[in-house]
Design a protein around this nucleic acid. Structure first.
Lengths: 337, 337
DNA sequence: TTGAAAGCGCTAACAG
DNA sequence: CTGTTAGCGCTTTCAA
């Protein structure tokens, strides 16, 4: 029964008129007589005709596809952002093609090349943690294809981007600790070449200075962003002669790594030590006590990124802009004495 | 500087030969002289030529796109499956277009229609929880387009599918409880029109009978698959004259809902009550004590679904098959007395 | 060994 | 008001 998609030609021959008449009738061209228009549209509906997007694409040189590259699409953070992008894209009749860089520069470069080959009309991406130079983005910039970066961004003078206020996030956490009466506030930082990490570390120090606490280097430890390594960093903190009474992780992973180390150490939260970090509601409320956390507006990040994308698609000559979204501190049991 | 993608025509005119010569040279056609072939390929490489997939698609009537429909792409479970599908698709030079049905039949039907309009070569999907009839799948079946269902499946006599052994999952949990010495084993079930729920409930009863425990109806409660409702169901269990000493949730959500209710009730796990359910490693190890859980081979589900898809694409007349993947019980602290 | 021409499905300029 | 034609980028017969 295998029936193929039908074409204008099929409709035309069935109605014994020319293809162009059918084409015009379908888009209500004023040149076509009302009766003909009605007849054509009726048949099209009956036969369930839909135009072939490949033919249209070839003609108009547009694929209606947006390439999306993320370090990893399984993480809640990124999948939620993707969902935001998809939401906007769908409204505009665009589709997205998702590729994962797995945080590898090499893979990221391949993704860009592949997407370009598929003739996507542009790319929305978050850089891999390995990416420090941007030769692979050149072709996009040269061809003036819309490019929007989010979360992990770069070249902000050339490329539009969406970020969250990372510095504010950690500053808010540290101030919150202080207001709750904690005075020995530690920070588990991460790979310092990442802009995001730098910002969050800055926010921590900013708050420490702001409230007039001593700037103690030993309360600032680093990890390589794995749970394992964050747990080790936490253990180092706990072994200090005067261990901290509050700790903030630099990322989702770092925070939960710290949490595990604290549990293993047998300390009670939030009495002996307070914990806070980055997590969505679901994860924050899964642990006991519930985790005080910074909530990222992931869906909005995606939505904004897509919005910037279409802005640029429609107006390629406009200056790049950066949208900074605010995060939200949600105090929960892990830091309420 | 906006340079467009170049075409065979561009190469041809630069070399002052015909388009067809270039076309043939690029695919090492034997008719073309070795020198010409070399010259053409050298230029193509230098100019970074890549064929226009739209033109190819139009010609061959294939888009190299697979539609993927999931109830929700943010959940770890589905995003991980998608990642498995994508992995295989990429290997074969295919792209996937992801749509979310948000567990709505109406949306699901729209997704199918949209994807069909885009001329995807087939669809891989998990049905929405509302979907009980399948008129929207007719066009796919009629046109003999490859269709593969996973997790939530139907029409298995007409359509290939990938499922996990749900009955075994809950059976394993209940047997595990029994082996650990628990005797009052409860089950929080869910919307009973779902095949998956039925299977899991069956597995529970099967184990109860197998070990010779009394089949107590009051240990079998239902929820509507939200955390809230699962927590309420759990509270109902706890209010029984003889409350259970072990409980298994029918799903990820139900399990964590139960867990919360137990915590609120102040019971200690695993001494006063054991808990087990469905969760990936990350979530199972986030809670204390770590949760005994059934681990789903999500990536493999995606991989298998894609494999079946391509099998069908290459051999449309073959009989539909069903792949049943095994789950893995990972015992952790929440059920070890 | 190479080129010319048709055709995949569609639109739009140009004729009639 | 409707039809003819060219062309988007590519492959593939058929001719030379």
């Amino acid at each position: 029964m295998k029936k193929k998609h039908l074409s204008l030609k099929d409709l035309a021959s069935e109605l014994k008129v020319s293809i162009s008449t059918v084409s015009r009738a379908l888009k209500n061209h004023p040149d076509i007589s009302p009766e003909m228009t009605k007849k054509v549209q009726a048949l099209a509906r009956k036969r369930n005709y839909t135009p072939n997007p490949l033919a249209m694409g070839l003609l108009r040189q547009q694929t209606k596809m947006i390439g999306v590259i993320v370090p990893d699409m399984v993480t809640q953070f990124f999948s939620s952002i993707i969902s935001g992008i998809e939401h906007v894209a769908k409204q505009r009749g665009y589709y997205i093609i998702i590729s994962s860089s797995y945080d590898s520069f090499q893979k990221e470069r391949e993704c860009v090349e592949n997407l370009l080959q598929t003739r996507v009309e542009g790319i929305i991406m978050s850089l891999s943690s390995e990416t420090k130079n941007f030769p692979h983005l050149r072709p996009l910039i040269d061809r003036e294809l819309p490019l929007v970066l989010f979360d992990r961004v770069a070249l902000t003078d050339k490329v539009s981007s969406v970020v969250v206020n990372d510095r504010e996030s950690t500053r808010k956490i540290a101030l919150h600790f202080y207001n709750q009466g904690y005075r020995r506030i530690a920070f588990i930082s991460g790979a310092s070449h990442l802009q995001m990490v730098k910002e969050r570390a800055n926010g921590y120090w900013e708050a420490i200075r702001e409230v007039g606490l001593p700037e103690k280097k030993e309360y600032f430890v680093e990890c390589n962003m794995t749970q394992q390594s964050a747990a080790q960093a936490m253990m180092k903190l706990l072994r200090l002669p005067e261990p901290p009474d509050a700790v903030c992780g630099v990322s989702h992973t770092a925070t939960f790594g710290a949490l595990k180390a604290i549990r293993n150490g047998g300390l009670t939260i939030p009495n002996e030590i307070a914990v806070a970090g980055f997590a969505d509601q679901f994860h924050a409320e899964l642990v006991t006590p519930n985790l005080t956390s910074i909530h990222h507006p992931t869906f909005e990040i995606g939505r904004e990124a897509a919005r910037l994308f279409f802005e640029r698609l429609e107006n390629p000559s406009e200056m790049p802009v950066q949208v900074v979204l605010n995060t939200q501190l949600v105090p929960r049991g892990s830091s309420l004495k």
